[in-house]
Structure formats: C-alpha cells, structure tokens
C-alpha cells in the first residue's frame, strides 16, 4: 500500500515478457513479408524486407492450383471443419452425459476406452482406415473427412465434456425430472445449454486441430476435386520448385477465419477452461 505500482523488478519483468511476446510475433512477421515478395526474391533474399510489395500475390494465390481456387478450398475446409465440429459437439456431449451420469461399472470402462482413444496415435491406423474408407466410398470427398474427424476427435470431446458434466450439479436435472420433462428434453433444454462454455472449448480445440490438420487431409483428399485449404496450399509446392510466396499468402488467407472465430468465442473459451456454471 502506498508504494508505486512499478518497482524496478516489475518493470524488468514486464520488459522481459514484452520481449517474449515480440519473439512470438517473429514468425508472423516473416509470414507477412514473404507473402508479399516478388517471386525471385523469395530465393535470393528470403529474410529481407520485400524490395517491392506485391499485393497481387494474394490474388494469384487465390486462383489456386490444378483448377481449384483457394475460395473452393476454403469452402471445403469450412464444410469439413464445421460439419465435424457439429457432429463432435452432438455426439461428444451426449456420450459424455450418459457416461458421467451413469453409475454402473460399464460407464467407467467406456470412459477409460475414450481416454485411451486420446492417447493412441491415430497415424498408426491410417492404412487400414484408408482401405476401409475407400471401400465405403468415403475417400476424396468432404463427407468422408467429416466421418473420419468425428471418429478421431470424439475421445477428446468426450473427455472434455465428461469433466464438465461431472461438475454440473445434478439438481437441475432432478428439478426438470420432477417438473415432468422427458430424458431427451432434460438433455436438450437443460443440460446442453448449461454445457455452453465447454461446448465453445470443444468447438475451438477440435476446430483448430481439424482446420490445421494436413496429414489426414493430404491422404484422404489428395488428387480429388475437393481439396481443403492445407491440401490446396500444398499444391504450390511442386516436385522441382516451391512457390513460397504463394504458400505464405495462402496461409495468411487461411488464418483469417479461425482467428475470427477465436476472437468471437474467446470469453466462452476461457470460461470453459476455468469455470463451471453460475446459477
């Protein structure tokens, strides 16, 4: 009390943290400058500030490769991400609710089953997954990817939802039950709205993972007419040469939607990580 807010120590600490934050921005700086460099300069002076700012890089990148524009790829990415996240929220919340509220031993086993699903690296299962998905006609289209991602990230969604449901007072559901609501009505009218903070967390976490995933999308969409953003961007990397300025410009474009979503859902996201339900 009565002391200055800034002592030498806090001042130093703040400077250090600001420095760290600046360091965090360095990749974004390079991303931005390379995205507007002329084609040749990417190779001659990759780290320098562009001698000439080429805004048309964005429009060239937007045209895409192999006849698929970046706009189409962006739409595909949105379809895949939104579709997968919607299914993950639906199945994840429902499954977690049943597992967390059921007191039988089977529920405990199921929970363990899902946790193990988070730990196991899914890359190991790519070959059998690919062959079975191909025989189901789910390779090379968005529906296949949606099904795939829903399966891959369901364990994480269930894990996140379960923790939240367990902390949710059971009184609300009991009150609704006495008030004459059916099971499904209790879930959709009472429980699901109360899960909103964790729903935002699940949406952002799985959404980011799906949006940024390259490996699965490359394997399941490569060569198809409906590539997602990462696959389309990879199209700029050829066998003999890579057009890095195009790649970087496309990456910048692809950052926009996910950044926008984060800004909108930021408050809910933090609440989902830290808090419960306030009555």
């Amino acid at each position: 009390m009565g002391q200055h807010r800034y002592t030498l120590k806090t001042y130093g600490l703040e400077l250090l943290l600001l420095g760290l934050a600046a360091l965090w921005c360095v990749p974004f700086y390079y991303l931005s400058i390379v995205a507007v460099k002329p084609d040749m300069e990417v190779f001659t002076a990759p780290m320098s500030f562009p001698s000439e700012v080429r805004w048309d890089n964005f429009s060239r990148a937007w045209e895409g490769t192999a006849g698929v524009s970046l706009g189409t790829a962006l739409a595909n990415s949105i379809i895949v991400t939104v579709g997968s996240v919607a299914l993950l929220i639906f199945f994840g919340s429902l499954t977690a609710y049943v597992i967390s509220r059921n007191r039988q031993r089977l529920a405990g086993w199921l929970y363990t089953f899902f946790v193990v699903g988070i730990i196991l690296p899914y890359q190991l299962a790519v070959v059998p997954l690919f062959s079975s998905m191909r025989s189901l006609g789910l390779v090379g289209n968005q529906i296949g990817l949606i099904v795939l991602y829903t399966g891959l990230f369901l364990p994480m969604a269930v894990f996140l939802y379960s923790g939240f449901v367990r902390a949710l007072p059971v009184d609300y559901e009991e009150a609704a039950e006495v008030d004459g609501a059916t099971r499904s009505r209790i879930f959709f009218r009472i429980v699901f709205p109360l899960l909103r903070p964790i729903t935002a967390t699940v949406a952002v976490m799985t959404g980011l993972l799906i949006w940024n995933d390259f490996f699965m999308q490359l394997i399941f969409l490569s060569g198809s007419q409906s590539p997602t953003l990462p696959v389309a961007i990879y199209g700029f990397v050829g066998e003999f040469t890579a057009r890095w300025n195009m790649v970087f410009a496309a990456v910048l474009v692809s950052l926009v939607p996910i950044l926008g979503f984060y800004l909108v859902a930021q408050r809910q996201l933090i609440q989902g990580f830290t808090g419960g339900v306030k009555s």
Partner: peptide, 20 residues
Amino acid sequence: LEPRDRDIAMVFQNYALYPH
C-alpha cells in the same frame, strides 16, 4: 413410477433454477 409421472412439485435447497 418415474418422477415426471407422479404429478408432484419439489422445491430444492438451492432452488435449482435453470440459470440459462
């Protein structure tokens, strides 16, 4: 009989008002 079929009303200790 399920609670919803008993036609009774209950007031809880912490009221259990639906916050949303």
